[in-house]
Simulated scan of single mutants.
Amino acid sequence: MGLVKRGNVWWMSFTYEGRQIRRSTETSDKRLAEAILGKVKVEIVEGKYFDKPREEAKTFLQLMERYLREHASRRMHYRRYVNMVDNLKAFFGNPKLHHVTPKTIVAFKNKRYVDGVMPATINRELAVLKKAFNLACREWEWTRDNPVCRVSMEREQNTRDRWLTEAEEGRLLKTALPWLRELILFAAHTGMRRGEILALNWNGVDFVRRTVTVFRSKNGERRTIPINQTVQDILTKRYETRGDASQTGESLVFGSEAQTCLDGSNLRRAFIAALKAAKIENLHFHDLRHTFATRLVQAGVDLYKVQRLLGHKSPSMTQRYAHHFPESLRDGVEILDRQRLISTISAQPAGGAMVDCVNG
């Protein structure tokens, strides 16, 4: 048993019936906290202490609302979090937290499959639910259990391998609106995600070093990306024609005329219309990121460099592109020929190779 200070409040930490219990004393006075801890010790010895589940007083809607307010609101793509929470609320309703069990969570997964939702989407929604319960357990003291931890995630099928061919790119650029054409080229030549591109501001553009900086990526990390001449030309043009010459710094590179972020749904509609006019099927805007990686690998660029450019934390995420350039693996098998030749030469008697050459 002991006391730990978190911020200005003292917390109790002790074991009860084989479980680690952490409870706030709700006081910043250490002497008072020690007295509260002493009382708990006596209750445990006398068998009068009961670890009452606090989830009985809280509801699912309260959990989701606080999650959006205190956690999701500080993340990129807040609208996406809201949509996922809406899907969760539509299924679970507003029960007490202790009524949300692994059984009901599995029922939610099954319902989403019936709705035609992909495994990856189901996993993202489960991740939101898991994070919310983690906060409720560890920080808010609303519950002592996270039921999502006892439910398996779905196996994702990340086998999509679609990229834009040179011929398709030519047709697409002809049918796309001018502003969309720039976004398509920018995405295909940087590998940046749609959200990263739309959030890019002029503070992240360095014309001297020829780089763009993503200050907060999907992984929450900063990433600096070198740019080629195609991207440099796009940025130079947009900078010179950005309207108010005083607009710098925080203003968006690809913002609207009112300098607000372009709406993702509007971008999606314009992209689909351009694809339809160009007679291109089964292509998503995110596939431009795959196009960037695929073209690099096909050109013989090392997978490690591709990983760094894409901002992948794990090389396994980049490995999917390896099959695009089997020639890069050829030196691995050609070494066997060299070893065989060396072994053959070493096995010949001294002067044997010279004699063969003369007789030949």
Rank of each mutant, 00 (worst) to 15 (best):
D244L: 00
D206P: 04
H312M: 05
A245V: 08
N359P: 10
Q307G: 08
H290N: 11
K131W: 08
V297A: 13
T101M: 09
K103H: 12
R112Q: 06
R23G: 01
H99E: 14
L129M: 08
L185R: 03
K103F: 14
F108R: 05
A277L: 10
A120Y: 06
S256K: 07
R150F: 02
F14G: 06
W10L: 01
L262E: 14
K103P: 03
G191S: 12
N83E: 06
A57T: 03
S256C: 12
T190V: 01
A278P: 08
K313D: 13
V253E: 13
V106R: 14
R66H: 07
R150Q: 12
L310K: 09
L173A: 06
V100G: 08
E43F: 09
D145A: 10
D145C: 10
V151H: 01
R150G: 00
W11D: 11
M84E: 03
G332Y: 10
H324E: 07
F50R: 15
T260Q: 15
A347P: 01
F14N: 11
E196W: 08
Q20P: 09
G38V: 05
D233F: 03
K276W: 01
A258K: 15
E196A: 11
V42I: 15
A187P: 04
G47Y: 07
Q259D: 13
D244P: 00
E334M: 11
H98S: 09
N203I: 01
H189M: 10
G360T: 15
M317C: 02
A167F: 03
K130D: 10
S346F: 03
K131D: 13
G47Q: 02
A176M: 00
L309R: 09
R155Y: 03
S251P: 06
L172I: 07
E139V: 04
R269G: 04
I272D: 02
H286T: 08
V42G: 14
Q259N: 15
R138M: 13
E46P: 06
V9R: 00
V114G: 07
L303I: 07
V45E: 15
R222W: 02
